[in-house]
Amino acid sequence: MSSLLSRNSNLSLSHEQIQLLEEAPFKLESFSSQLKKLGHFPLKPTEIDILQINMGKMCNQTCRHCHVDAGPDRKEIMSLETLEQCLEIIKNNNISTVDLTGGAPEMNPHFRWFVEQLSPLGVKTIDRCNLTIITANPKYNDLPQFLAQHNVEVVSSLPHYSQNHTDRQRGNGVFEKSIKALRMLNEVGYAKEGNDLKLNLVYNPVGCFLPGNQKSLEQEFKKRLRMDFGIEFNQLFCITNMPISRYLEYLIESGNYESYMSTLVNAFNPSVVKGVMCRNTLSIGWDGYIYDCDFNQMLDLKVESSAAQHVSDFDLNLLTQRHIRLGQHCYACTAGSGSSCGGETL
């Protein structure tokens, strides 16, 4: 498996993906019209308190469902200048949570510098760590100690407690390396009783179905990971797979695109609309452009042009008044119990 971009796939082009989603040959009600019926259109932010920063598309893994189309061949990396601009935004705008993602954010050469700058600010810092990066190269082996030292919350994908399922989604050998990395995180105090260091896992379905009940899955994961591997973690976040990028490719190739979209639309839950993450989060791309969420970022749907579109002219007031850009992919965040980077939203 390599990135869509390196394979010159049409799906590496955001407009091709949008066309597939918006002009599907089968008829589905538009997401915007659903919100109109509920009186939630246009969708507006509440209070912006989370800044999710995509530090680059480079990754040591090439997962089959990746919405970023990340991989070792992707060279897009956030510059020091852009990170400095992000830091100013965080300091001046009452941002309470900084969520670092990628690719593998740790592969950005300025990752540690940035975390060190955030540490004294008292903001909650999250590292969306793919786990295998910790063992991928000796220079990353001390990441658990570094993250613990700066009280960084670790959020890591582990789609199943079985090797078979995890490796099918994330690549051969990923499960074994992930278990090793989880043990290293536990060893420095993550998810240990009486310790504030948080280690949360992300579950997303290995296939074209919706996640089950988050609490039940969390209980099952805790039981199996403790029993089989002696591993502890805090919470399990269930995230619905987003029908874009490599997951969209999988849906089309497996003949499940129409049925998956129908599943998302049929599972539309009006009661989760108020809590969708784009209402309190801003997403920053590797090149400093601002998006409503990481998914809109990958579809190159920048925040609407009346708002400041780049970190160099960040204006919280304008951004708070903006209308959030919507598309058919948004159904993934409103299906069932809702889905966000922090799991269920209900």
Partner: peptide, 11 residues
């Protein structure tokens, strides 16, 4: 089949 997969059951 769909429901058991959603609930995290293995094959």
């Amino acid at each position: 089949t769909q429901d058991t997969l959603q609930k995290g059951c293995t094959e």
